[in-house]
Design a protein around this nucleic acid. Structure first.
Lengths: 232, 232
DNA sequence: GTCTATAACACGATAGAC
DNA sequence: GTCTATCGTGTTATAGAC
């Protein structure tokens, strides 16, 4: 059940409960230190020492410092994936489903906001293995897109068939944008982000409905062309 | 016109002409090596050796490898802010003005893409004084918005009066988005970014025109509410 | 097999002598 | 202003302990 899958899919499950416990301790210490003093400034030696293990032990559980952040990615993504059905189950309208999904995502990330802010410097770097657009995060991104697809199915909104296949990517990109805004939002509890999301999402859905009307066909085909250009 | 000029306005003027010459030589060598084999692959040892100085000497002139990037970046900033008005002078239609502005911006930044990628880590950090959204860059941002206003004035497109005051901020934000895409665009010469810009801008202007029609008043007021929420 | 510890490498960065 | 000597970093190799 607690299978941790690494980059190339090989299974690094901790057999003993002791090992599992050690791994989680290292993970927790790493996240705390990253949040406290940033990713670059935190040393592997410091993490190991704080977790009460040797440097070699830390490298036994995590092949690199990046791998520790990957663990955070996976953990949050797994939480979101697990909850996505429940979160959307009670909502029928697309805008409500999207809002619920986004708000739940923010809720999950809330305890790690400081960490995310410190990590944003690393994440934004296209060269970094931790880039959300890079190949190293492909599996996590795929999992995220699958979650989004669950949200985008089973609603009553009429959307043009040509547009539908692009919606998951588009919404995932919007989610990234929300996160950027969220890291910059210093309002209490980041309520401004939530207020904005709750305003923008219904409008976006409304626009999506308008874009599905027959009369705006030229505009729609233009948009489709843009969407095709955006990701090859 | 857009980003950052100087952190705390520190001036590292070289007293002697000899030192100045050495600094420029190191800078030039760094420039060449970065362009040749990328930022990460170039070592300080290599730069020093190529410039005919010791490693320590290189670190005397530049406190870090990043500092070299900063120096190269500052040099290009002057060029960018200069000719905003000229670029748009020959275009009347809004979409043409916007495209010309963006394409010129990308053109100026093109030789320094590596630099920008490096800097994006600093720029994205909300805590950084260099954040384009922070108070420390207020003057620069104001200046950037003024440049954008030049682009947005003197065209023949009919846009609703309520929308107009928000356009500079909105367009500036879009420019930031373009830069993020641009840093992630590994197509040859970043032609994908340009293709996307040239497709999106006319569509955006078209949508802007539609949003100015009397019939979509509810949608427009909703959008205005969002825009007001976005920046307190 | 699973886990841990020690030693060492290559690199970026720094201190302080000259 | 210049440079040497040294340090701290992520990472790897390897040997040993449970």
């Amino acid at each position: 059940m607690l299978l941790l899958v690494d980059v190339e899919g090989e299974c690094v499950s901790e057999k003993t409960s002791k090992g599992q416990k050690t791994r989680e301790r290292i993970e927790g210490v790493a996240w705390d230190l990253f949040a406290e003093k940033g990713f670059e400034k935190t040393t592997m030696r410091e993490i190991a020492k704080e977790a009460g293990v040797s440097l070699g032990a830390a490298y036994h559980y995590f092949r690199s410092k990046d791998e520790m952040v990957m663990a955070l990615y996976r953990r949050t993504q797994m939480t979101i994936s697990a909850d996505v059905a429940d979160v959307c189950a009670e909502h029928l309208r697309l805008e409500d489903r999207l809002c619920a999904f986004l708000e739940h995502g923010l809720e999950v990330l809330e305890p790690h906001r400081e960490l995310m802010i410190r990590l944003s410097s690393v994440i934004i770097n296209p060269r970094s293995p931790l880039s959300p657009f890079g190949p190293q995060t492909h599996e996590i991104r795929r999992s995220a897109l699958e979650s989004v697809m669950v949200v985008l199915e089973g609603h009553d909104q009429g959307i043009h068939a040509d547009l539908r296949p692009h919606l998951p990517r588009l919404f995932w990109l919007a989610w990234m944008g929300v996160l950027v805004y969220w890291t910059h939002d210093d309002s209490e509890g980041q309520r401004r982000t939530r207020a904005l999301v709750n305003k923008v999402v219904p409008m976006a859905v409304q626009v999506l409905g308008l874009l599905s009307l027959p009369m705006v066909e030229p505009l729609r085909t233009g948009l489709l062309e843009v969407l095709r250009l955006g990701q090859p």
